[in-house]
Simulated scan of single mutants.
Amino acid sequence: MRAEPLDPARTDAYLRRIGADRPAVPDAGALHDLHLRHLRTVPFENLSVHLAEDVALEYKPLVDKVVGAWRGGFCYELNGAFAALLRALGYRVELLAARVFGPEGPGIPYDHLALRVHTADGEGGPWLADIGFGRNSQYPLRLDSREQQPDPAGLFRIEETADGDLDVLRDGVPQYRLEQRPRALADFVAGCWYHRTSPDSPFTRSLVCSRLTETGRVTLSGRTLVITDADGGRDERELSEAEVLPAYRTHFGITLGRIPELRG
């Protein structure tokens, strides 16, 4: 079932959340701007997993979390909410399932959610938009190109597989394998449940909150705060218990009632 578009007031609230103006035309330039602004303002985080919070894969609660609660999320949440915004702005958006590459190859079905985005005039597309993969391309990638695609985050390339899927590579290393069949948000419920509950999931074994900045990246992993800059500089330090909640507020705009603790 297609998602109901956001009403104008909620769309405007979402745009304020990411510091963006409403684009006059849903074109490629506006998509690139929205993509980058989202990465710089809405963190990739799995705090709900370690705060015992529910993750409802429905468009309204996903948008409410990002816009109303001033939180982030992982791929299902971030790309789900972003899809709702893009549709409200006039883009045609399809949800695509992917499997993330690990040491032993691609992961589980519905391991990851990414977006195929078509602009109103078909300008230079379709595009792969993905603001839910942590350290990934800062701008959308051309899904119809098999050439190298330079990006501030690295050199990306999309390869076709023998089965008709697409492998997304960063600096020559496969990141995930993307199916081309459009999916519904409900199709990802089992994958989301696995990543929230399985002891084999990277999201139950780590505690992370990370956001792109204009000069690098800021990441709070457990109580380790890491700030990097464009020149390769790195500032890393362990926070005291009293510093953790203020760090979430200062660096990510997230106000929490208690410190998330890694599930043991």
Rank of each mutant, 00 (worst) to 15 (best):
F156K: 10
A153V: 08
I227H: 08
L169N: 02
E160M: 11
E214C: 04
G191C: 09
S145L: 12
Y194S: 02
E159W: 11
E179V: 09
A162Y: 03
L225K: 04
R181T: 15
L143G: 06
R223T: 11
T197K: 11
R196K: 09
E147R: 15
L212F: 10
R217G: 04
G172L: 03
G164S: 11
A190F: 07
Q149E: 03
G191Y: 08
A153D: 06
L143V: 08
P202M: 02
E160P: 11
P140M: 08
L207N: 09
N136L: 05
L178F: 03
V226T: 15
D165I: 06
A190C: 01
L225I: 06
D200K: 11
C209Q: 03
T219R: 09
E159A: 14
Q138V: 15
V226Q: 02
Y139W: 13
G216Y: 08
T215Q: 14
D187C: 05
L166R: 15
C192M: 13
T224F: 00
S137N: 12
G134K: 10
L155G: 00
T161S: 12
W193Y: 14
S206I: 04
L155E: 13
P202Q: 02
V218F: 06
F203A: 02
F203E: 00
P174V: 11
R135T: 10
F188A: 07
V208A: 05
A184Y: 13
F156A: 04
D187V: 05
T219I: 00
F188H: 10
Y176D: 00
D187I: 05
W193M: 06
D144M: 00
D200F: 13
S198W: 07
Y139R: 15
R196Y: 05
E159F: 11
T219E: 00
A184L: 15
G172N: 02
R135W: 05
Q149G: 06
G232V: 09
R196W: 01
P199K: 07
G154C: 05
L155I: 13
G132L: 09
T197P: 00
R135C: 01
Y139H: 14
D151G: 09
C209E: 00
T219C: 01
G222E: 01
S210K: 13
V226M: 02
G191N: 06
R211G: 00
D231E: 14
A230T: 12
D151H: 10
D231N: 09
H195A: 03
V208D: 00
F133T: 09
A186F: 09
D151K: 11
T228F: 06
D231R: 14
R135H: 12
Q180D: 08
S221E: 14
L220G: 01
A184R: 14
P152F: 10
L207P: 11
R177E: 07
T213L: 01
S198I: 07
Y176K: 03
T197Y: 10
V168D: 06
L141H: 04
T161F: 08
P174H: 07
A190E: 14
V226Y: 00
E214A: 15
R223M: 02
F203C: 02
D171T: 05
F188M: 09
G132V: 10
T204S: 10
L155K: 04
P199W: 07
L225W: 05
F133C: 06
E160W: 11
P152K: 08
